[in-house]
Design a protein around this nucleic acid. Structure first.
Lengths: 353, 353
DNA sequence: GTTGAGTGCTTTAACGATAAAGCATCTCGA
DNA sequence: TCGAGATGCTTTATCGTTAAAGCACTCAAC
C-alpha cells in the first residue's frame, strides 16, 4: 500500500494516517478530537502530524465543510481616495484581530469591475472565497451595496446606512457627535460665527456631520452666521475652503471640519494667511486617526473608534455566518471628544509630549 | 436524473450542465474554451452559466488545480508599528493591482503566532491558502523570514536583505539614496554640521540610510561634525531627537531624517524651540508617502516608489509561482529627490498649491 | 447464551472542478 | 469499401477532508 516516493507535494492527512497505520478518516477524527477514537490513537496521530509538519489543506476543508475560512474586507476603489490611509489601516487592523480570533483569513478586495456587470465582491462571495464581507464607507449612491445586502449573503457594514433598513451595521452617531463638537465651540469658547467644511455630500458621513453642525448652530440661535462649504475629506480641500472664505471676506471665528485631514489643510492655510489659531479662529477636526495629535497647534477632535468598530463588525459578521444572529441591526459606538490646542482648550505648552 | 428541488445552496457547474443537457465535464471544457467542444455547445453553456449566475467554486478549483488563486501579503506585527500606515496602504495597493491583473485574491496576514512554533505565515502557505507571499520590512533578526525563504515556497521580499542571498527581492538603494540627499544638503545648501536621525538599526532600512549619510559626510571630509541619533521611525522619536540635541547644546545646521514621519516630528520640535527651518537648520526627510507634501514648511524628501515596488514584487511572485523564474534576484528601483521648502530649495510661496 | 450497548476503527460517499482516457459517430483518402 | 483520423461528447478518476454508516469485537445484563 506504500505509495511511490512522494512527489514534491505537500503533506496530507493520508501521510499522517499511513505513518500511524490508520485510515485518513481515523486521523481526521483523531485531530478533531472525536470521542470515537481512543486516546492512544489520538496521541499517535497528533504526534505524527506534528513530526511531519502537517497542516490541513484549506481547499480540501473549504470544499468539504462548505466554508471558506475567510472573510472579505471590501474597499470600493472610489472611497480609497475619499477616506484616508489611516482609516483603512485601522479598519484592517480591527478586522484582522477579530478574524485571527476565529482562525479565519482576511481577504482584501479593492477592485469593483463594473464592466462585468456582477460586482467583483459579489463574485468573491459566490465563488465561496469568503464566507462573508465587511464593507465600509461606500457612497450613498452605490447600488452595489444595496444589491449585496439584498443578496442575503452575510455582510456587515461599517458606518450608517439609513437608506438600507435591512443591513447589519456598526457605526457612530455622526449627527450627535458633530452637534456636540460644534456646541463645544459655541458654548465653551464663545464662538458665534461658524463655518463647517463638510465631507463629500454623497457619503452619509458627510451628510450626517453637516446635519449635526446645522442643528447645533440652530439650537444656539446663530444659524444666520453659519456657513457650510463642501470639501472632499482631502487636505487640499480644507486649505481651499479657507482660501475661499478669506478671499470672500467672510467674517468667522470658528470652524468645524468634517475630518482631521481637511482640518490640517485648513490649519496650514490659516497659518499662511497669518491668522492665529485658536485665538482668532478656533477650529476642530473629526476622527483622531493619528494626524491630529501631531499638528501644531494640535487639533481638537472627535475620536472615532475605527479599529473597534471594525472589530465589532467582524464579530457580528461571524454571528451572521454561524447563523447565530437575529435579523438586521445597527450597533452604535461612543465617540470621545479630545480637547487639544486648536480650539483653545489647552495651550501649546500643555500638549502631550 | 433530475434532483430534488435544490437546497438553498449555490449554483454549481452541475446545474449549468443539467440546464444545457451535457455532463459537468463538458460544461467545464466549454467554459475553458476547449477545442474539443463544439461552438454550439460552448454558446449554450456560456448562456446557461450567465443566466444562472454561475461562479466557479474557488475551493473546488483550488483543490483540483492545486492552486489557491491567492497571494498573501504578510505584515509582521512588529513592523506594523515601525513602518507607517501610509507605507502599508501603498504596498497593499500595489499588490492588489498586480493580483487583480492575474485574477488572484489578496490575503492579508498580520499575526505571527510565535507560540505555535510554526510561524503563522508558513501555515498560510502550507495550508495552500495562498500560492505565494509578499513579505516586507521585517527586522533583520527575524529568523522566520529566513526560514520562509529557505522553505522553497514562493516568496518575494520588498526591501533589501543582504543577509539572505537566496531571496528574491525588490527594493531601492537606500545607501545611495541617503548618500545623495545628504550630499545635497552639503553641496547645494552649504551645510557642514549635520545630524542624522536614523531609523531602528535592527532594520536594514535603518542601517542603510545611516550608512549613506555617513559615507556622504565622510566624502565631504566633515565627519567630525556628523552625528547620528537612533529613532524608531515614529514622529515622537523625531521630536525627541531634536529636543535632546537642543538640550545638549550641540551646534548643527542640517538634519537628515531617515523618514518623513520623524522629520515631521522634528519639524514641530524645531518650531517649538523657535528655530527657523530651513534658514537656521535645513532638514530633509525620506519616503514621500504623503505627509511630506503637507507639512509647513513642506518637506524635501526622497521619493520611494512603494506602490510600484509592491506591484513589481507581486509580478515577480507570479513568475515564481508559474515556474517561469530563474533563481534568486534583486531588482532595484530608482528613487527621486523631491525638492521642497525644508532644505531651502523652494520658498514657501513657491510650494505647489 | 443470546441480546444490547459500547468501543474503535474502516468503508463509503460527498463537497466542485477538471484533466485524461474512452467511445460513439462522421468524413475522407486510397 | 475500409481503416485512419477527426469530432464531440461521456466516463472515470483525482485533488484533501470529513460526516455518516458499517463492521468487528468486548463486556454486561437478563
Amino acid at each position: 500500500m506504500a505509495r511511490s516516493p512522494r512527489a514534491r507535494t505537500s503533506i496530507t492527512l493520508r501521510d499522517v494516517a499511513e505513518l500511524v497505520g490508520v485510515t485518513p478518516s481515523a486521523a481526521s477524527m483523531a485531530l478533531l478530537d472525536s470521542p470515537r477514537i481512543s486516546a492512544k490513537t489520538k496521541e499517535a496521530v497528533r504526534g505524527a502530524a506534528a513530526s511531519l509538519g502537517y497542516v490541513p489543506s484549506s481547499a480540501g476543508r473549504a470544499l468539504r465543510n462548505q466554508r471558506a475560512g475567510a472573510v472579505a474586507l471590501i474597499v470600493p476603489n472610489t472611497s480609497q481616495h475619499v477616506f484616508g490611509h489611516s482609516y483603512f489601516m485601522h479598519v484592517l487592523t480591527g478586522v484582522s484581530a477579530a478574524a485571527n480570533a476565529h482562525d479565519t483569513q482576511v481577504l482584501v478586495s479593492t477592485s469593483s469591475d463594473a464592466a462585468n456587470g456582477v460586482a467583483a465582491y459579489e463574485r468573491v462571495m459566490r465563488s465561496k472565497s469568503a464566507d462573508g464581507a465587511i464593507l465600509t464607507s461606500a457612497a450613498v449612491t452605490d447600488l452595489n451595496v444595496e444589491r449585496l445586502v439584498a443578496s442575503g449573503l452575510p455582510v456587515v457594514l461599517i458606518g450608517n446606512f439609513p437608506h438600507l433598513p435591512d443591513a447589519v451595521s456598526v457605526g457612530v452617531d455622526d449627527v450627535a457627535a458633530s452637534h456636540s463638537i460644534t456646541k463645544h465651540l459655541i458654548e465653551r469658547h464663545g464662538r458665534s460665527r461658524l463655518v463647517h467644511v463638510a465631507g463629500p455630500l454623497d457619503h452619509q458621513t458627510g451628510i450626517d456631520r453637516r446635519a449635526g453642525f446645522e442643528s447645533a448652530v440652530a439650537a444656539a440661535g446663530i444659524e444666520d452666521s453659519g456657513r457650510v462649504v463642501e470639501g472632499d475629506f482631502g487636505e487640499e480641500s480644507g486649505a481651499a475652503a479657507v482660501d475661499e472664505l478669506v478671499a470672500s471676506g467672510f467674517d468667522f471665528d470658528g470652524m468645524v471640519f468634517a475630518n482631521d485631514d481637511m482640518a490640517f489643510g485648513g490649519l496650514q492655510a490659516l497659518r499662511r494667511h497669518g491668522i492665529d489659531v485658536p485665538r482668532s479662529i478656533a477650529i476642530v477636526g473629526f476622527d483622531d486617526f493619528g494626524l491630529s495629535r501631531a499638528t501644531s497647534p494640535s487639533l481638537s477632535t472627535m475620536h472615532v473608534p475605527a479599529e473597534r468598530m471594525a472589530y465589532l463588525a467582524t464579530e457580528r459578521l461571524f454571528e451572521l455566518i454561524d447563523g447565530k444572529s437575529t435579523g438586521p441591526s445597527h450597533r452604535e459606538l461612543d465617540v470621545t471628544f479630545i480637547p487639544r490646542t486648536s480650539c483653545g482648550c489647552t495651550t501649546r505648552g500643555a500638549d502631550p509630549p
